[in-house]
Measured scan of single mutants.
Amino acid sequence: QKPVSAYALFFRDTQAAIKGQNPNATFGEVSKIVASMWDSLGEEQKQVYKRKTEAAKKEYLKALAAYR
């Protein structure tokens, strides 16, 4: 399975908490809140997710090379 983006990892980590705080929110509303949070996130915090994405990408490429 291809690795997901840094934003997708952040979304996955954040979505449940947002939904818990806003139980009646639609998926679209939750998405807007998470997107706003991502935009206001500091670069250092974004780097945490970007590093996770890079590590997953390297593992994916290694597994793909081994498969071929």
Results as ranks from 00 to 15, higher is better:
1 Q>F: 10
1 Q>C: 04
1 Q>S: 04
2 K>T: 05
2 K>P: 06
3 P>C: 04
3 P>W: 06
4 V>M: 15
4 V>P: 12
5 S>T: 14
5 S>P: 03
5 S>A: 05
5 S>L: 00
5 S>C: 10
6 A>E: 15
7 Y>T: 01
7 Y>G: 05
8 A>Y: 03
8 A>L: 06
8 A>N: 08
9 L>H: 04
10 F>E: 02
11 F>E: 08
11 F>C: 05
11 F>A: 07
11 F>I: 02
11 F>M: 09
11 F>T: 07
12 R>N: 15
12 R>M: 11
12 R>H: 13
13 D>L: 02
14 T>Q: 14
15 Q>Y: 15
15 Q>W: 07
16 A>S: 08
16 A>F: 08
16 A>C: 04
16 A>N: 13
16 A>Y: 02
16 A>K: 12
17 A>W: 06
17 A>R: 14
18 I>L: 04
19 K>Q: 13
19 K>M: 13
19 K>C: 08
19 K>E: 06
20 G>C: 09
20 G>E: 14
20 G>I: 12
20 G>R: 14
20 G>Y: 04
21 Q>R: 13
21 Q>A: 11
21 Q>G: 05
21 Q>M: 07
22 N>A: 03
23 P>H: 02
23 P>W: 00
24 N>C: 05
24 N>Y: 02
24 N>K: 12
26 T>L: 02
26 T>Y: 00
27 F>H: 15
28 G>N: 14
28 G>T: 11
29 E>P: 01
29 E>R: 02
29 E>F: 03
30 V>N: 00
30 V>D: 00
30 V>S: 02
31 S>D: 09
31 S>E: 12
31 S>W: 01
31 S>I: 02
31 S>N: 07
32 K>Q: 05
32 K>H: 05
32 K>L: 04
32 K>M: 07
33 I>L: 12
33 I>Q: 09
34 V>E: 00
35 A>T: 10
35 A>I: 09
36 S>M: 09
36 S>R: 09
36 S>L: 04
37 M>Q: 09
37 M>H: 06
37 M>T: 11
37 M>A: 10
37 M>E: 09
38 W>H: 01
38 W>C: 01
39 D>P: 01
40 S>D: 06
41 L>P: 01
42 G>S: 14
43 E>K: 07
43 E>T: 11
44 E>F: 02
45 Q>F: 04
46 K>A: 01
46 K>L: 02
47 Q>W: 09
47 Q>F: 03
48 V>I: 09
49 Y>F: 15
51 R>D: 14
53 T>W: 08
53 T>I: 09
53 T>N: 09
53 T>Y: 15
54 E>D: 11
54 E>G: 05
54 E>V: 06
55 A>K: 13
55 A>N: 12
55 A>T: 11
55 A>Q: 12
56 A>Q: 11
57 K>I: 03
58 K>M: 10
58 K>N: 10
59 E>C: 04
59 E>K: 12
59 E>W: 02
59 E>H: 01
60 Y>D: 14
60 Y>K: 14
60 Y>W: 06
60 Y>C: 03
61 L>C: 12
62 K>Y: 04
63 A>S: 14
63 A>D: 13
63 A>K: 15
63 A>C: 09
64 L>W: 06
65 A>N: 14
65 A>E: 14
65 A>P: 14
66 A>L: 12
66 A>T: 15
66 A>R: 13
67 Y>M: 15
67 Y>T: 15
68 R>D: 15
68 R>L: 09
68 R>A: 10
68 R>E: 15
